[in-house]
Design a protein around this nucleic acid. Sequence first.
DNA 1: TCCTATTTAGGAATAATTATCATTTAATAA
DNA 2: TTATTAAATGATAATTATTCCTAAATAGGA
Lengths: 153, 153
Amino acid sequence: MCEKEARNTLIRHGLKVTPQRLAVLETLRNMDSHPATEHIAGFIRKNYPHIATGTVYKILNTFVEKGIVKRVTSDRDIMRFDARTEPHHHLYCAQSEQIADYFDDELTRMLEDYFKKKQIPGFRLEEIRLQLVGNFTDTGTDNKEGNNSHHHE
Amino acid sequence: MCEKEARNTLIRHGLKVTPQRLAVLETLRNMDSHPATEHIAGFIRKNYPHIATGTVYKILNTFVEKGIVKRVTSDRDIMRFDARTEPHHHLYCAQSEQIADYFDDELTRMLEDYFKKKQIPGFRLEEIRLQLVGNFTDTGTDNKEGNNSHHHE
DNA sequence: TCCTATTTAGGAATAATTATCATTTAATAA
DNA sequence: TTATTAAATGATAATTATTCCTAAATAGGA
């Protein structure tokens, strides 16, 4: 099911289907932790030991160009990635390196409405990203892969 | 006047006053372009040729710890800095590497009010950062140092 | 002025990312 | 199915951003 979806995504964007690309896309879609390139490569190597790091970098860049995944900026000097393309925002932990998705349609709508009314002179707005910086208080979810998003509303 | 202010800032934060620190702080305060470390170092070297790159990195880290300057995240893998500590947001140009300040008190207030009412479960919010991604349309301001901020309201 | 803890310079070391290029592979069509 | 061709991958080198290290310099207080 997941592989099929990944395969379709690649084809839909005019990309050749390779095992490496499938692995990167499936991995990223199954990880909610907004992993850095090395994390993705390391995770893939568990099942598919021969993937080269450079290949993962190249694949991720291709995916970003095609809009299949998004970059998430972090305060550290590494790039992290996100397979969710629906409009959403991010929670950043000030202490740990954790980044979580934050879905909030009301907020998204509020911001869109705001900028529909109030144009910024000299700037054509394309995307609104909110970085919510703070601390996670539910210590239970610590680093547990796969439950790293907050839905609201 | 500017050196005096910079000097006071250092003293106020319990830092020794050194020519290097003054140079970094004055430079960053005079540049609106949210420069990366290398840009700051390069700029300083025009008047003060012997400053070491590592020194600039160390000084900037110290300043961030003390809250004198802020980090600005970029889509590229470099850190950029901002000497403005008042609450404000940023305009990112998708093409060029330009980042501009965006001051909008109404917006800041709206977001603060929103999160005062709507708590995020499991998360203690400390800072709200808005990244407005798009394109600068006023080609006149291209890269011109010193006029890189947008006030609104 | 002198003393001492900090700070700096300079370079080496590390980490993240990109580039290169020979080899392999996926898609296409005969 | 096989041949063809453009594209992708692996391995490694190169680049870039940043940190680390240590001796020398220096700020600020006694």
